[in-house]
Computed example of a mutant assay.
Amino acid sequence: MYEHLIKLQKRLAEKLVICPYENDIKLVAGVDVSFNKNSNIGFCSVVILDNKFNIIEVGFHKMEVKLPYIPGLLSFRELPLIVNTFKKMKNIPDIIICDAQGTAHPRGLGLASHLGIVLKIPTIGCAKNKLVGDFVAPPDKKGGYSILQYKGKTVGIVLRTKVGCNPVFVSPGNLIDINSSLAVIMKYVGKYKLPEPTRLAHIYSNKLRRNEI
């Protein structure tokens, strides 16, 4: 039923540029999308921070999403929400961090990668759960990591951002590589498990969903 979307993912994955990120980072964005249970209304928040974790801008968008949740096709469900949110933003971030996968995806094109192609901005996937791949548990220390492999290829890393917490799954989206993605995520990790941009975006998207803002 969704074969055409799978074919499109494969074609888009060929357009990814995985390379070191060597520019200065002044602004970083975090993206999060939430839904009410049994509802097709999506709520998106984009939070832009500076290097001192100060909030520079917060953007919101909500809209009806017709495509159901299908593992591996998340980007087609959430991308319109996210793109419409970015259209409202006054600031353009240097890098975007998504609570989603980048190249650690069955066809190498998770939401972070798809977004990076559409916006032409470097993107990183930093997900709470694994979608594909095999790994050994990373060392239980902040910054400890192990390699995430899928079909004999390194697609990301499994990163411990806080002692005693489950790791996050980091993979490059577009216009960045694994090592640069690791450095960026660690730069924006504060005292919590998730990097501040996506942690705050999650808080704001849920506030929007609950009609608190």
Rank of each mutant, 00 (worst) to 15 (best):
N54V: 02
I147S: 13
I157T: 07
V136R: 03
Y69D: 06
S45F: 08
Q9K: 06
E14T: 07
T123L: 08
N84G: 06
A201S: 12
S146M: 10
I70Q: 07
I96A: 00
L79K: 05
V189I: 13
L115Y: 14
R199P: 02
I48M: 04
T161G: 12
L131W: 03
V31Q: 04
T85P: 07
G152D: 13
V47N: 12
K128C: 08
K87Q: 14
L194Q: 13
L74H: 13
L79R: 01
D140V: 11
P195M: 05
S171F: 11
M63N: 14
Y69Q: 00
T161E: 10
L111E: 07
K151D: 14
K37W: 06
K15M: 10
A29Y: 11
K193S: 02
F53M: 12
S39E: 15
P93E: 12
K187V: 01
K10D: 02
R11I: 09
K52S: 15
S205G: 00
V170T: 03
A183W: 01
S75A: 15
E57Y: 10
P195S: 01
V118S: 00
I147F: 05
D50G: 10
N36Y: 07
S146K: 03
F76W: 07
K52W: 12
P71V: 12
A127C: 10
V189K: 12
A137T: 10
L5V: 00
I178N: 03
V189W: 08
Y204F: 15
K37Y: 08
E196L: 06
L74R: 08
L109A: 08
V65P: 12
K142R: 15
K90N: 14
K52H: 15
T161Q: 02
Q9C: 12
G190R: 14
L111K: 05
L131K: 03
K87G: 06
P139L: 12
Y188S: 08
L182D: 01
L12E: 13
G110K: 03
K151F: 11
K66F: 11
N211A: 10
R210S: 05
I185G: 00
P167N: 13
G143V: 09
D134Q: 09
A29E: 07
G156V: 07
V46P: 04
H105Q: 06
